[in-house]
Structure formats: C-alpha cells, structure tokens
C-alpha cells in the first residue's frame, strides 16, 4: 500500500488526513490488505460469490404512494435553506 493510493482513497471519501495520520493509515491498511491476501489463498473455484449471508425470499413493495414526510419535517434537517430548498455551498 503506498501513500499515493491512500491519498486518493481519502480524497474519494472526502477525508482530510494530516501527514502523521497518512503514515499511520498507510501502515494499517497495509496490514489489512495482507490479511485479505492471506484469505485469498483459499481455493474458491466453483463457489458463487456471497452477496448476502441471509438466504431468504425476496420481498417486494407494491407500487402504492404512502408515507411521504412533510416538507416541514424534511426541512428540519437543513442547516441552511432558501424557501423549501436545501442550500449548500456552490457545487458544479
């Protein structure tokens, strides 16, 4: 695991890391990857990848409108607003 990859992943996750954090996390992630490398030694030929450990019947919802939350409720979570729209720093 090199520092550049860690920097990139941190950027994608919008995390700001200091130099010392970057060093520490690079070391830790290297250990994590080594752990997975060890696991990947296991022969999995013919084994279907496990998407979920719960083997239960699929559940659908019928196409019926219900359970909207009100504008007032949803806007309670807006740190900043303009009318009934969430206002955030400019992003293009």
């Amino acid at each position: 695991m090199d520092r550049e990859i860690v920097k990139k992943v941190a950027h994608l996750a919008r995390l700001e890391l200091s130099e010392s954090e970057l060093n520490a996390i690079t070391n830790k992630l290297t250990l994590v990857l080594q752990h997975f490398e060890a696991i990947s030694q296991v022969n999995t030929e013919g084994v279907i990848p496990l998407v979920t450990p719960v083997d239960i019947e699929y559940r659908f919802r019928e196409d019926v409108v219900e359970g909207d939350i009100s504008v007032d409720e949803v806007m309670q979570n807006a740190p900043s607003r303009q009318g009934n729209l969430f206002k955030v720093p400019p992003v293009i």
Binding site: V65, E66, G67, D68, I69
Partner: peptide, 16 residues
C-alpha cells in the same frame, strides 16, 4: 420507497 414520483410538485414535497 413509497413517496410519490409526480412531476409537478412543490419543492421537496415528495420525500421520505
């Protein structure tokens, strides 16, 4: 989720 997909709606009126 069960909130409406209607096109003409007030701002943030159809959320869950």
């Amino acid at each position: 989720s069960a909130d409406s997909t209607q096109f003409e709606a007030a701002d943030n009126a159809h959320t869950s």
